[in-house]
């Protein structure tokens, strides 16, 4: 049994297990669910994620009022941009960002998504896993193992810190999702459990202090940009870990730092739509238009 990253890693080392195996054993202990049923349940979730990552690439999605949201059309436009030969990040990374934007757009339009770990951050893990699955021709079973790694990392974050923007800012939502995706990406590249947790640390370090400042309180702007940027953060953090970078602060302490940083953010920067981007003149005007005076 584990409760922190250190004890999770110790379990992997003691049993010579990959991370997903330790996470599965822990889940079985907690819920009585066996490995086969865990994989089946995860596969259903992965299907939902894949649908939401595709949905807005095909068609711009309108809001529940029948009017465009603040982010309607972003995913399709980005997908078209990704096809051009002269992008800065290249076709693969741009397609990944388009997928993350699609999940955000689906979410904003009252479409079906799978929270990962939250609805606001639901594009990051799917974008990273779907893109690596496609680019590296990874078998489905291994992708599901990576999804279990991501979820196991997210569970440790949830248990010891928070994944709520209202409590810890965007670093706790999109940041946690990036940390989860980074650990999963390392696994897909056959990195060690230790490297997965280093990637998790790098991702949190790269996003530490990021505030939650949604315009008009809606899960649209800047949530869409941050789904795209945190998918990128996940990949670069995985590369840093795979290249051998080791943070002198252990993973559990990095997580604690994220949690404390979140707690010390003023309430105006924790989902209240008062500070940051939401507090700008333009942000306030949009809020008035949407909610009335």
């Amino acid at each position: 049994m584990y409760s922190h990253f250190a004890s999770m890693l110790a379990l992997c080392q003691e049993k010579h297990w990959p991370l997903w195996k330790a996470v599965c054993a822990e889940e079985t202990e907690l819920t009585g669910r066996d490995e086969e049923s865990i994989f089946a349940r995860m596969e259903h979730r992965y299907d939902i994620m894949a649908q939401s990552a595709q949905k807005a690439l095909d068609n711009p999605l309108l809001g529940h009022t029948g009017k465009p949201t603040l982010i309607t059309g972003l995913a399709q436009a980005h997908q078209q941009y990704a096809q051009r030969g002269n992008t800065l990040c290249g076709p693969v990374l741009n397609r990944m960002m388009a997928r993350a934007l699609s999940c955000s757009e689906a979410n904003a339009s009252m479409g079906r998504v799978c929270a990962m770990p939250t609805a606001g951050a639901c594009g990051i893990v799917p974008a990273v896993l779907l893109t690596l699955e496609e680019e590296l021709s990874i078998p489905r079973r291994k992708v599901l193992e990576a999804l279990i790694v991501a979820s196991g990392v997210g569970a440790v974050i949830t248990q010891n810190a928070t994944v709520s923007g209202a409590e810890g800012g965007c670093q706790a939502e999109c940041g946690a999702a990036a940390a989860m995706a980074a650990a999963a990406a390392v696994y897909l590249m056959d990195g060690t459990p230790e490297q997965s947790l280093q990637a998790m640390s790098h991702a949190l370090i790269n996003v530490m202090g990021l505030v939650c400042d949604p315009i008009a309180g809606l899960v649209q702007i800047p949530c869409a940009q941050r789904n795209a940027s945190q998918a990128m953060n996940a990949l670069l953090s995985a590369d840093l870990a795979l290249a051998g970078m080791v943070c002198p602060v252990p993973p559990d302490e990095v997580l604690e730092a994220m949690y404390r940083t979140g707690k010390s953010l003023p309430p105006t920067l924790r989902e209240t739509a008062l500070g940051g981007l939401a507090g700008t003149k333009a942000g306030q005007e949009i809020a008035r238009e949407i909610h009335g005076a």
């Binding site: 049994m1 584990y2 409760s3 996470v23 822990e26 889940e27 202990e29 907690l30 819920t31 865990i38 349940r41 995860m42 259903h44 979730r45 939902i48 689906a106 979410n107 904003a108 339009s109 009252m110 479409g111 079906r112 998504v113 799978c114 929270a115 990962m116 770990p117 939250t118 609805a119 606001g120 639901c122 999804l147 279990i148 991501a150 979820s151 196991g152 997210g154 569970a155 440790v156 949830t158 248990q159 994944v163 989860m180 809606l218 899960v219 649209q220």
Partner: peptide, 23 residues
Amino acid sequence: MIVSIFEVAGPIMVGPSSSHTAG
């Protein structure tokens, strides 16, 4: 652990917010 991985990967829900719509 006292947090299930399906609390993290989930819920499957209609957006935009687990508190404001799903809950």
